[in-house]
Design a protein around this nucleic acid. Structure first.
Lengths: 269, 269
DNA sequence: AATCGTGTTTCAAATAGTGAAACTGCCTTG
DNA sequence: CAAGGCAGTTTCACTATTTGAAACACGATT
């Protein structure tokens, strides 16, 4: 369910295959993917060949399995650097994490899911791809709801139509009605809360990152546990979270990439 | 130069476009890419539409620019986890960094370039800009040469044909002959050195990670500076580096992914 | 030796991609 | 203010690629 609509020709199909391989979360055999795929054997085979050729899939001849290819890692590095909010927001995320002493997340939408671009844990050290790149549901996370509240109705409808409304906890909003009610509330307040809706004991406050024109760039959240903070405690952080989101938005607006990238590539060996 | 050969139909072209966008290292306008592209305007335009639709490119309507899309970040996260050596090697890389007190890199080939999958910086951080997803030249990096030395002649030829042999320093190997000579030496010794071939003052020792069958899985290197260590000092680490590479290879061979991935996705909000 | 399950190749029919050129709308210029 | 230029978008006849059923290989069972 919640499949990205194909129909973008061959390219769409190829990317769908990548998603299918990714969904297994381990190297897969050709036939495993074939079972889940709507394409005939020959067609899928050729797609695999093409993608492997292109470095988007990697083939392990010993085990006869396919995995996602390293080319993706290179592209993602470039994506993270160039087109997302992450590099711009980094110092702000860091500062917010320091001053609150809690975990801070930066996220954007990927299709109908929340995709985490960065995470800062006040106490623990940083890891790279282990956290950036994770996805979560839109309807029961703070950032998901905060961003949704400020999207066009058209997009909101598209996203909502692809939510599972699975009940993770007793507080999960499990219907479009409940969600829309919360979104309206978030829209008027300017920030949203996750009241143990995704995981028991985990609460958070989140604000959208908006352009001056009101377009959603991303979302920012401060997460804590019920053991450490109450909902009211978190709500008291609202001005701080919103101010940080605002600062990131301004920075993003002002940021101009150098006319000519002149960085010397300095890599290790 | 060193372009990934197209010819894989539409999918190949679409991916080539992604590479072109990535190459700019900043958001680009449609026409900028058009200039560099061999495709007519209409065709390129349709590719952009498709890729944007699919979340592989993102469009900023305010600035009318395209960047690489967040979907790549999600896919790369999956790629890093599932198909590369990185998760398996992580603890070994860490340990090697600890025991040597130097920076350790883990890399694989992406097409004809060295792609860094992981990096562990010891306590004394070296002034160096590399991390997961970065790429470097194959002919003048320790890991690049160490891996190349153990590839099939066919692949070596392909890779060599795409090297620029740009002279980064006075020690850079700038011809196929010099490189092949060094590769032969590496093959006999089982490890290779970077003797300030890429950056002045930066030296390293590297070993390939090989399957029992002799297939190249990746490369591992320990990097230092001439200020801290001599080439002889590094060479003394050869047994340790090779042993670590061997351990990673064994681990990779033994590793079986769980029959059914049952991880509950626990993300923040 | 026969069977099964993978993976690979083939080929006419169907589909999707191509690219020259025309169009739109905005921004600059005379 | 009109004319021209530029960036982006759309169109459409032509072509090349993709499709998918089916047959083929080949190693691993039985």
């Amino acid at each position: 369910m919640a499949e990205r609509q194909a129909g973008d020709g061959t390219v769409g199909k190829a990317l769908e295959v990548l998603d299918m391989v990714a969904a297994f979360e381990r190297p897969v055999r050709f036939s495993e993917v074939l079972e889940d795929s709507p394409y005939p054997k020959g067609t899928l085979y050729r797609l695999f060949q093409t993608l492997t050729n292109q470095g988007m899939l990697s083939y392990d001849p010993d085990r006869q399995t396919y995995g996602l290819g390293v080319r993706l890692v290179r592209l993602a590095h470039a994506a993270w650097q160039q087109s997302s909010l992450a590099p711009i927001a980094r110092s702000y995320v860091e500062a917010l994490s320091q001053s609150t002493g809690e975990t801070v997340h930066l996220a954007q939408f990927d299709h109908a899911q929340v995709l985490y671009l960065d995470k800062r844990n006040a106490l623990k050290p940083i890891e790279m791809y282990s956290q950036a790149g994770k996805v979560g549901p839109a309807y029961c996370t703070g950032v998901g709801k905060a961003m949704m509240a400020f999207l066009d109705e058209e997009e909101v409808a598209r996203i909502i139509s692809q939510q599972s409304f699975h009940r993770f906890t007793e507080h999960t909003l499990t219907s479009e009605d409940e969600l829309r009610h919360d979104l309206a509330d978030i829209r008027s307040k300017g920030f949203g809360m996750d009241r143990e809706e995704h995981e028991p004991g985990i609460i958070c406050i989140a604000a959208p990152i908006l352009t001056p024109g009101g377009r959603v760039l991303g979302g920012l959240s401060v997460t804590s546990t019920t053991a450490q903070k109450s909902l009211a405690d978190l709500e008291a952080l609202a001005p701080q979270v919103q101010a940080t989101a605002q600062n990131i938005a301004v920075e993003a607006q002002n940021w101009h990439f150098p006319d000519q990238a002149t960085d010397t590539i300095r890599t290790g060996t």
